[in-house]
């Protein structure tokens, strides 16, 4: 078991997964989102390659209405 923080909340995962797999698990596959891992942007093209590991801190964001 590993633990990661996604958008400020703790999530438990069986094992390290890549970013794409994590998005699928969180029901965000195919949605227009941007991902930051430990303060660094994870470009969309690298979602299948970058592994989410124990203790990682992720931010997943969308565009919303605002001024």
């Amino acid at each position: 078991m590993i633990q990661v923080i996604v958008n400020g909340s703790a999530h438990r995962l069986e094992a390290p997964v890549n970013v794409r797999a994590l998005l699928e698990k969180l029901e965000m596959a195919g949605k227009k989102v941007a991902v930051e891992r430990n303060g660094e942007i994870v470009p969309k093209s690298l979602h299948p390659d970058i592994l989410v590991e124990d203790g990682d801190c992720l931010e997943i964001v969308v565009a919303v209405g605002g001024g």
Partner: peptide
């Protein structure tokens, strides 16, 4: 203008998005 915010994980997976209402192809974000 648009704001950037955390997604609501596990909620409203099919909620309409701003990007659909105001397509970036028609407006400069």
């Amino acid at each position: 203008t648009v704001a950037i915010r955390r997604t609501n994980i596990g909620q409203n997976a099919n909620e309409p998005s701003l990007l659909e209402a105001l397509p970036p192809s028609k407006f400069t974000y």
